[in-house]
Design a protein around this nucleic acid. Structure first.
Lengths: 250, 250
DNA sequence: AAACTGAGTTTCACTCAATGAAACAATAAC
DNA sequence: GTTATTGTTTCATTGAGTGAAACTCAGTTT
């Protein structure tokens, strides 16, 4: 939020208003004061910025809670943005089916540089806290989905990832590389408590019709529900779903 | 674009920036000067507003065309906005299937007050001009989808629509009411050149699991391809699709 | 009932940030 | 070559945007 970057020639009031909008990437509902704290601006300033955002329909106030939420204008814009060949849109119904079958959170990750991005999700109804908001960027060296994305990437990409100067010293490269090999032979990856304490995940690769890797599809939940055995048990199911989903993508 | 409404206490620069964003509801790509004409502002003003919008990722410049487009931030926001029980998202894959089967543009309309809103679409690849952008609001007195939405609405709603003081005098109410009756007995509506010259459409109701009307699903195209006979022929197909889609919605 | 919190809203004086005109650069069109 | 037509920068002017503080209105606490 405190990112001025190097761009000059920018309009301060607009920057601030957009920062306010961006607050809603990890919060669904916010009060005026919460926002003013988050962006570090005076209440009255935020008040007027919110008035503009609300006036144009980018935010609305929920009638009951009185809190601010994203408005229909965001949806209207995104609808025109969304390509119908956008995986995130096409695959959601199938992901929901899988979620309802397994009862755990289903996520879809793509690789972007040396990170992975969560582009779609069907949250478990039991989950209290979300794994990560959609659009969240995570490092590629921990988590089942990370390894899937690296394991099935082309050799050049894999090398580039492993050569990342920011690779953390506490993760042994050779162990990691060995894991990739294992994942390729199994067809899926699992992780327990790697990225977050108490959380486990199974992840499988998602290939498009041409057989290219496009994403990693993961099932994640608390490790007391998602034990190693349980994950092994559901893996074929998940791989099957990924296969079906892959057929939908060019 | 020239809508100040009654809201005071609003920040001018922000209002203007948001107006610029809204230009992209009916245009995919715009140049700076095009925008400045559209919103009626000085080029340099627009230049700086664009710098802010671009800096925060709400707009990007297409590397080739150099023109402005909606940026990833819009998608990121909308991803968090989109409920997974949002019909527009859930139904798209099925709509695409139907589009690929019939080769014509598939649209989904919901009623909102005395208008209908196009909430989702799978455009025919042959179509040059779009029927309407997503989010577009159209009157309820012309077009196949309008009549479907009215025909299957509850009596109170139907009455409210027919009592609209702005009902155009050149459309006879009794004829319209008779058509509704016919639509209910057929299970679908057709229209030729009603809303737009040379365009035809078949539309069917979409009911949720509880049997409530939620939307109208339409197939539209040029009337030389979509003749009355052709429409009669494909109607069962469309109704079947609507039935399947309805099962996905609470 | 009074005092107190913690929401949102309004007022107001100050001043700096946003503005438009015009000049400028960089291509594309003729 | 000239002529349009992009996008970009400069600069003086001023009024739009700002923060502090006052205020309202519910809901809690004392």
């Amino acid at each position: 939020m405190t990112d001025n970057s190097e761009n000059k020639n920018t309009v301060r009031a607009v920057d601030r208003a957009l920062d306010i909008l961006l607050c809603f990437t990890d919060a669904k509902e916010l009060t005026l004061t919460a926002i003013s704290q988050k962006v570090g601006l005076n209440k009255s300033t935020v008040y007027r910025l919110l008035a503009s955002l609300e006036g144009r329909g980018f935010l609305t106030r929920h009638p009951e809670t009185e809190k601010y939420r994203l408005g229909f204008r965001v949806w209207e814009l995104s609808a025109n943005l969304t390509q119908e060949d956008d995986p995130a849109t096409l695959l959601l119904p199938e992901m929901i089916r899988l979620r309802d079958l397994l009862g755990e959170t289903i996520s879809l990750y793509i690789r972007n540089g040396n990170e992975r991005v969560r582009i779609q999700a069907a949250e478990s109804t039991q989950t209290i806290r979300r794994v990560a908001p959609i659009g969240a960027r995570l490092p590629l060296y921990v988590g089942a989905s990370s390894k899937v994305l690296v394991a099935y990437a082309d050799a050049q990409v894999r090398e580039k990832v492993l050569d990342d100067p920011e690779w953390p010293p506490y993760i042994d490269r050779q162990t990691y590389i060995d894991q990739l090999e294992e994942i390729r032979s199994n067809g899926y990856a699992t992780s327990i408590g790697e990225r977050e304490e108490g959380a486990a995940a199974v992840s499988v690769p998602l290939f498009n019709r041409r057989g290219e890797l496009v994403a990693a599809l993961s099932v994640s939940g608390p490790y007391n529900r998602l034990t190693q055995d349980k994950m092994k048990e559901i893996a074929p199911e998940v791989m099957e779903a990924a296969k079906r989903m892959g057929k939908m993508i060019k």
